[in-house]
Amino acid sequence: TFYNFIMGFQNDNTPFGILAEHVSEDKAFPRLEERHQVIRAYVMSNYTDHQLIETTNRAISLYMANL
């Protein structure tokens, strides 16, 4: 899942690491979701930090390219 992918960046001092920290603390994050459209919609609806949203979009693109 995307959640498992992004958790691989925990403790990294990178934008993906920052995203992983936010996702791990977000109890409502769709952890079992595999459809990138649902993940993107969730982030757009629940996150207000523009940098975090952009990082999510980049992470989703990388995740999709590696499926």
Rank of each mutant, 00 (worst) to 15 (best):
T1V: 05
F2S: 02
F2M: 02
Y3L: 02
Y3G: 00
Y3F: 12
Y3A: 01
Y3Q: 00
N4Q: 13
N4V: 09
F5L: 01
F5Q: 00
F5R: 00
F5I: 02
F5T: 00
F5Y: 07
I6D: 00
I6M: 07
M7I: 08
M7L: 10
G8Q: 15
G8I: 07
G8Y: 07
G8L: 12
G8E: 10
F9A: 01
F9L: 04
Q10W: 13
Q10G: 06
Q10R: 15
N11I: 05
N11M: 09
D12H: 12
D12T: 14
D12C: 14
D12V: 07
T14I: 03
T14N: 07
T14S: 14
T14V: 03
T14H: 06
T14K: 03
T14C: 06
P15W: 09
P15R: 08
P15E: 14
P15F: 07
P15L: 11
P15D: 12
P15Y: 08
F16R: 01
F16T: 01
G17T: 04
G17Y: 04
G17K: 06
I18F: 10
I18R: 14
I18S: 08
I18E: 09
I18G: 06
I18Q: 12
L19C: 02
A20S: 05
E21G: 12
E21F: 14
E21M: 15
E21T: 14
E21S: 14
E21H: 15
H22G: 02
H22S: 06
H22I: 14
V23R: 01
V23W: 03
V23I: 15
S24C: 09
S24D: 07
S24E: 08
E25I: 11
E25S: 14
D26E: 03
D26K: 03
K27V: 11
K27Q: 11
A28I: 06
F29C: 03
F29D: 01
F29S: 06
F29V: 01
F29T: 08
F29I: 05
P30I: 06
P30H: 03
R31H: 07
R31P: 02
R31G: 03
L32A: 11
L32P: 04
L32R: 10
L32S: 12
L32C: 13
L32D: 14
E33P: 03
E33L: 03
E33I: 04
E33R: 03
E33H: 04
E33K: 03
E33W: 03
E34M: 15
E34D: 13
E34F: 15
E34P: 10
E34K: 15
E34S: 15
E34G: 14
E34Q: 15
E34A: 14
R35E: 08
R35C: 13
H36A: 15
H36S: 13
H36E: 12
H36K: 04
H36I: 15
H36W: 15
Q37M: 09
Q37L: 09
Q37K: 08
V38N: 07
V38S: 08
V38F: 09
V38G: 04
I39H: 01
I39G: 00
R40K: 11
R40T: 08
R40L: 15
A41P: 00
A41W: 09
Y42P: 00
Y42M: 03
V43W: 03
V43N: 00
V43C: 07
V43P: 00
V43S: 02
M44K: 09
M44A: 10
M44C: 09
S45Q: 14
S45K: 12
S45G: 09
S45W: 06
S45V: 08
S45M: 13
N46M: 10
N46H: 12
N46D: 02
N46K: 08
Y47E: 01
T48G: 08
T48L: 11
D49W: 05
D49H: 05
D49P: 04
D49L: 05
D49I: 06
H50D: 12
H50W: 13
Q51K: 13
Q51F: 15
Q51R: 13
Q51I: 13
L52P: 01
L52W: 05
L52C: 05
E54H: 09
E54L: 10
E54I: 10
E54K: 08
T55Q: 05
T55W: 09
T55I: 14
T56I: 14
N57F: 14
R58T: 08
R58A: 11
R58G: 05
R58I: 11
R58E: 09
A59Y: 06
A59L: 10
A59V: 07
A59D: 01
I60Q: 01
I60L: 15
I60S: 00
I60D: 00
S61N: 11
L62C: 11
L62Y: 07
M64K: 09
M64C: 11
M64T: 09
A65C: 11
A65M: 12
N66C: 13
N66W: 15
L67K: 13
L67N: 11
